[in-house]
Nucleic acid binder design. Sequence first.
DNA 1: CCTACCGATCGGTAGG
DNA 2: CCTACCGATCGGTAGG
Lengths: 187, 187
Amino acid sequence: MISASRKAHIRNSAQKLFQEKGYAATSMRDLAKEVGVEAPSLYNHFSSKNELLKEICFDIASQFFTSFKTATENQNTYSEKLSAAIKAHLLIVYGNIDASTVFFEEWSFLEGADLAKFKKLRIFYQQQFKTLVEKGIEAKEFKNIDVNLTAFTILSTLNATRELFKKNSFEKVTEHCIKILLNGIKH
Amino acid sequence: MISASRKAHIRNSAQKLFQEKGYAATSMRDLAKEVGVEAPSLYNHFSSKNELLKEICFDIASQFFTSFKTATENQNTYSEKLSAAIKAHLLIVYGNIDASTVFFEEWSFLEGADLAKFKKLRIFYQQQFKTLVEKGIEAKEFKNIDVNLTAFTILSTLNATRELFKKNSFEKVTEHCIKILLNGIKH
DNA sequence: CCTACCGATCGGTAGG
DNA sequence: CCTACCGATCGGTAGG
């Protein structure tokens, strides 16, 4: 019984457990119980525990990239582009709380080539925010601030929002993030 | 051979490993190797792996509280108090990178009463920042922003700085955090 | 501080 | 999809 929906169900369960207990502290037997099968059956769908982590991390990474691109390309000013990028990022977090948490907190358990590739993706994604800030400064929309520190601050704020979505609406959190982050850097 | 310095050495090694690999993925044998003894010898100094985590987390918590108090009580305006609290917090992070990382990322592995007590301390610490923001709004120093979201944003930004201290000086990071956070909320 | 060792649990495989 | 099972490793104890 190898169906796509079964595989998706296992992945959703894994996301939930990895987020709750952490990757290292979640056993394949924990996951099997959550899914409702015996542990060895999981290996008909995923070749290893680490491959499960890999699929979760890279799938959400690609969502962040796609969302960023479509959100920013139709905006004119860098303020608007940055606002749109923030909203786009938060939309992915909001719609994938478990997977986002795994993406942010458990990625370091990736192994070998996956780990190296993942680190590059992270740097590249952060670079996109950095470029928006840089061009915004050139266009004199933003203050002359340190672009590395600023891009880092923006992303670490956005990544912490998964906690906030438990108690606050998407709109409220997004509005707050845009306000506090853009006020800090706009002229 | 149960000396205070030996115990401190074990704790420092544990902080380093818990920060690098995570609490769950660090074994007592890993720690023993780092310290330079056999695993059972560790139990002459700590009754369990979890007690090691407990000492790390609560010790740094008490440092955050002390630092906050002495920094804020001698300031006049709420802008100054908040700036001082930010600097005080960053000073503890900067001086205890490993322990801070464990405090922020691994506390959820605390057990039973320790876990409950730790959660209360976290909430209380965040409440102190929230109060500064509230009073700053009342005193018309700050904009009329959501105090819960703002206190949360401030702390999540500060807690992410441990990454920044690897490549940037204490002064640079502190100045940046105060600037970007206070600009976002001041009138 | 060590050696020797405990029961439990781990990720994963064999075979059907 | 299951049962049966593998070697490795886990946190921790006994005893000296």
